[in-house]
């Protein structure tokens, strides 16, 4: 029995903003199914009442003194921009509006 269907993979790819070719869909579905098959062995373990661990070392949110310090210069921050306009990152239009 397969654990994950091509529809599941398609839905997951949409959530992850990935487009898969037909070949990729097929190979990813097969690979994910095999990985989940291996992961299913965890179901044999009784974990009732076990606290989940998100971080191995107990952490408290550390606090530091709130002081003014120089932040990254806008020109430097924009050095890697694929496309820029003035001091902003330019992206395709999100909302249609006047001046179209």
């Amino acid at each position: 029995m397969s654990r994950i269907s091509p529809e599941d993979v398609k839905r997951t790819a949409a959530l992850a903003r990935l487009s898969l070719s037909d070949d990729e869909m097929e190979s990813m579905t097969r690979d994910l199914d095999r990985i989940l098959e291996h992961a299913d062995q965890l179901k044999a373990l009784d974990t009732e009442g076990i606290e989940p661990t998100a971080h191995a070392i107990p952490l408290r949110t550390p606090l530091r003194v709130d002081r003014a310090a120089p932040a990254i210069d806008p020109e430097q921050a924009l050095l890697n921009a694929p496309l820029r306009e003035g001091t902003a990152f330019a992206v395709p239009k999100v909302i249609d509006g006047e001046g179209e």
């Binding site: 839905r11 990729e24 994910l32 373990l45 989940p52 661990t53």
Partner: peptide, 28 residues
């Protein structure tokens, strides 16, 4: 891509408890 898909899947609604939370418990 494979790992992003697997990670997205195990965090998605309906699978979070069965996979991700379970794994965090086994981590304990």
């Amino acid at each position: 891509k494979r790992r992003i898909l697997l990670g997205t899947y195990v965090l998605s609604a309906g699978y979070f408890d069965a996979y991700y939370r379970k794994a965090q418990q086994v981590r304990t």
